[in-house]
């Protein structure tokens, strides 16, 4: 195991007091948490609460105003470009709208990071890329271009692309919310497979059922703060904060109604 080299008590990822404002609006008001190896934490909360901004900050795709990010106990200095690029490989990011490279085939989408970032020889990179696509069940579609793939397939390619970089943590920002309902399952099962393989993950989602089945902890985020966190059952059904209860009630009812219609 990789983690034998690490002191067992150091979290893989720790973020400390992250604050971010856009203009005069404070979007993140000091967010902290940590993930141990294999932890899966879900973030839920109303739209505009800062969930995407938080994930972007963790990866330095958005630069925060205050706070610290640690990977395996070492603080990341984003001004050090080498360190930043190495860190980003370790923290895979999955976007709501896939963001595949449109001019590259599925295979090339996965291969390009290996060749251009990791500097692995083309043939070897290709082999690895094929293996990653096989892992998400897309080997037979590897020569298709993004425009020829369904939404579910695109998202699986984007997961393979991130996995190819050997991440230690995956950040997933509503990975299925842009998908037609019948395509959600295939992406969920890929994520479940990752979970079963021990991947450390942060999952932002509105699908509380999925979050509850996967995560050991759910964090409820609203207006730039983590209002409360705890085991799924507690957050979803016995939250201590009124805001959390209100949100969870609404979303649970909504889901039940959806289920009734099916």
């Amino acid at each position: 195991m990789k983690d034998s080299a690490m002191p067992a008590n150091v979290p893989v990822l720790r973020i400390e007091n992250i604050k971010k404002r856009f203009g005069d609006k404070e979007i993140l008001k000091g967010v902290s948490f940590e993930l141990n190896r294999g932890d899966i934490k879900a973030i839920i909360g109303p739209s505009g609460g800062g969930k995407s901004t938080l994930l972007h900050c963790i990866n330095f795709l958005t630069l925060f105003d205050e706070g610290h990010v640690y990977l395996n106990g070492i603080e990341i200095d984003h001004a050090n470009k080498r360190e930043l690029y190495a860190y980003r490989q370790k923290v895979g990011m999955i976007f709501q709208d896939f963001n595949l490279f449109d001019h590259l085939s599925a295979l090339q989408n996965v291969q390009i990071g290996l060749v251009r970032v990791k500097k692995i020889p083309k043939a070897e990179a290709r082999e690895r890329a094929v293996a990653e696509l096989e892992r998400v069940g897309l080997k037979e579609h590897m020569n298709k271009y993004p425009a020829e793939l369904s939404g579910g397939q695109k998202q699986r390619v984007s997961i393979a692309r991130a996995l190819a970089m050997d991440p230690e943590v995956m950040l997933l920002d509503e990975p299925t919310s842009a998908l037609d309902p019948e395509l959600v399952g295939e992406v969920h099962s890929v994520i479940q497979k990752l979970a079963a393989g021990g991947m450390t993950m942060i999952l932002v989602t509105h699908e509380i059922g999925f979050a509850g089945s996967l995560a050991k902890e759910i964090m409820f985020m609203d207006e730039g703060v983590i209002v409360e966190k705890g085991p799924p059952r507690k957050i979803l059904y016995e939250a201590s904060q009124a805001r959390t209860r209100e949100f969870c009630d609404k979303i649970i009812h909504f889901h039940h109604r959806e289920d009734d219609q099916e």
């Binding site: 990866n59 795709l61 470009k81 690029y85 190495a86 980003r88 490989q89 895979g92 990011m93 976007f95 709208d97 896939f98 963001n99 595949l100 490279f101 449109d102 990071g113 251009r116 970032v117 984007s158 692309r161 991130a162 970089m165």
Partner: peptide, 15 residues
């Protein structure tokens, strides 16, 4: 070109 592609490229460690 959708801005997300630049983000995705950065996210896999590209300069």
């Amino acid at each position: 070109i959708p801005e997300g592609q630049l983000k995705a490229a950065r996210a896999i460690g590209m300069s």
